[in-house]
C-alpha cells in the first residue's frame, strides 16, 4: 500500500514537471485544424476548386497534366517521372513511406490527392489542407478518378472526356475480341520470386479486355508471388514481361529470353512469344492506360492490326462550356469524330 502511494506520488510529480513545459511545445499541432477529408464514396457535388494541389500518386500527376491543370499543381511525389516536365518543374515532397511534411507545409497546399490507405491517412490529414483519397485499383475506380480530378482542377469536361476515352477503348477492345478465343497469358512484373499480375485490378481487367486469359488469375490479388510450378502447369501461350522500360538495352531483353529458354515446355517459350511492355503503361493509374491496352492487345495478337481509336460516344462538344484554354485531348477527339471512326 505504501509502495502504491509512493508510485502514485512520483507519477504525479513527473507529470507535473512535464506538463509544465507543454504550452511551449507544438504550436503547429494546434494550428493545423482537422481538415476536410473526402473520398470518392462520400463526395458531394463539386463545390470547391483548388489552386494549390499536391499529388501523391504518379497516376494523379499524369492525369492532372493530361487535363491541362498543371499550373494548379504545386508538388508531386518522388516517384512521379512522367511527363518529364513534371519531374523538372515541380517540387518533390517524398512518398507515402517518407512524407516530407515540412516541404508540403512550405508549399501551402489547399488540397492533397492520394491513394487511400491507413498510413496515408495518418500522415496526410494533419497538414492543414483538404485531403482527397481516390482509390485506383480497378478500371471503375479510375473512371471515377478521372472525373473527380477534372472537377478538382476546374476542368470537369476534360475529366469526363478522359474517363469516356478509357471506357470506350476498353469496350471496343472487348467487342473486338469477343469472338476470338482468349490467349492464355502470363504477365510478369518481377523475378526471384516471380511476381505476376493476379485476377484482380487494372492489369487483369485490361488483359481480359485485350483478349487474354490470365493464367495466374485464380488468385484474386492484383500482384502476387506465383509458384513456378504453376507457371509450368498453366502452359501460357504468351508471356508479357513488364520488368523493362521501353528504352532498355537489348542485352537486358536477351537475358530475360535466355532465362525463359531454360523451360522449353512452356508454349510461349517454344513459339518465342515473350513480349515486352513498359510497366508504366499498365500499372500507373492514369491516361496512359489506353496506350497500355493497345500495346497489350498487340502483344497478344501481333499479326492483327488494331482499329483506329473509336469516337467516344458522349464527348462534350468542344465549343461549349469548359473553363480555361482548349485542352489537347478535346482537339484530338474532334479529329477522330471528323474522320468517322470504327464500328459503333
Amino acid at each position: 500500500m505504501k509502495r502504491l502511494l509512493l508510485a502514485a506520488r512520483s507519477t504525479f510529480a513527473a507529470l507535473a514537471i512535464f506538463l509544465a513545459a507543454a504550452p511551449v511545445v507544438s504550436p503547429a499541432e494546434r494550428a493545423a485544424a482537422p481538415a476536410h477529408v473526402a473520398s470518392t464514396s462520400s463526395s458531394v457535388a463539386p463545390a470547391k476548386q483548388y489552386r494549390r494541389i499536391v499529388s501523391f500518386s504518379p497516376g494523379v500527376t499524369e492525369i492532372i497534366y493530361k487535363l491541362g491543370g498543371q499550373d494548379r499543381l504545386v508538388g508531386i511525389s518522388s516517384f512521379s517521372d512522367y511527363p518529364p516536365e513534371a519531374a523538372k518543374e515541380k517540387p518533390q515532397v517524398g512518398a507515402i513511406l517518407n512524407v516530407d511534411a515540412e516541404k508540403i507545409l512550405s508549399l501551402r497546399p489547399d488540397l492533397i490527392i492520394s491513394p487511400p490507405g491507413a498510413m496515408a491517412k495518418e500522415k496526410l490529414t494533419r497538414l492543414g489542407a483538404d485531403v482527397e483519397f481516390l482509390p485506383d485499383k480497378t478500371l471503375d475506380d479510375l473512371a471515377k478518378s478521372f472525373v473527380r480530378i477534372g472537377e478538382l482542377v476546374g476542368r470537369p469536361a476534360e475529366g469526363r472526356a478522359l474517363s469516356a476515352e478509357l471506357a470506350s477503348a476498353v469496350a471496343a477492345a472487348k467487342k473486338r475480341n469477343a469472338s476470338r478465343p482468349p490467349v492464355k497469358t502470363l504477365i510478369v512484373i518481377g523475378y526471384e520470386p516471380m511476381w505476376v499480375a493476379g485476377g484482380y485490378g487494372v492489369v487483369d481487367e485490361l488483359l481480359l479486355a485485350g483478349g487474354g486469359q490470365n493464367v495466374a488469375g485464380a488468385v484474386r490479388k492484383d500482384f502476387y508471388a506465383v509458384s513456378f510450378e504453376s507457371v509450368l502447369a498453366s502452359e501460357p501461350d504468351v508471356i508479357v514481361d513488364l520488368t523493362l522500360p521501353d528504352d532498355a538495352e537489348q542485352a537486358a531483353r536477351d537475358a530475360i529470353v535466355a532465362f525463359w529458354k531454360r523451360f522449353p515446355t512452356i508454349p510461349a517459350v517454344k513459339n518465342s512469344r515473350i513480349e515486352f511492355v513498359d510497366i508504366d503503361l499498365l500499372t500507373i493509374p492514369g491516361p496512359r492506360l489506353v496506350d497500355g491496352l493497345a500495346r497489350l492487345e498487340k502483344a497478344l495478337r501481333p499479326q492483327e492490326s488494331l482499329a483506329p481509336r473509336p469516337r467516344p460516344a458522349d464527348a462534350p462538344s468542344p465549343a461549349s462550356g469548359g473553363s480555361g484554354s482548349e485542352p489537347s485531348g478535346a482537339r484530338q477527339m474532334t479529329n477522330d469524330a471528323s474522320r468517322g471512326g470504327g464500328s459503333k
Binding site: G190, Y191, E192, D241, T243, L244, A248, A251, A252, A255, I256, A258, F259
Partner: peptide, 18 residues
C-alpha cells in the same frame, strides 16, 4: 534494377549476382 536483368547482369560460375 528489379527484373531478370539484375540477376543475369553479373553471373559467375552459374551463380547469380545476388
Amino acid at each position: 534494377s528489379s527484373g531478370m536483368a539484375a540477376f543475369a547482369a553479373f553471373e559467375r560460375w552459374g551463380f547469380s549476382g545476388l
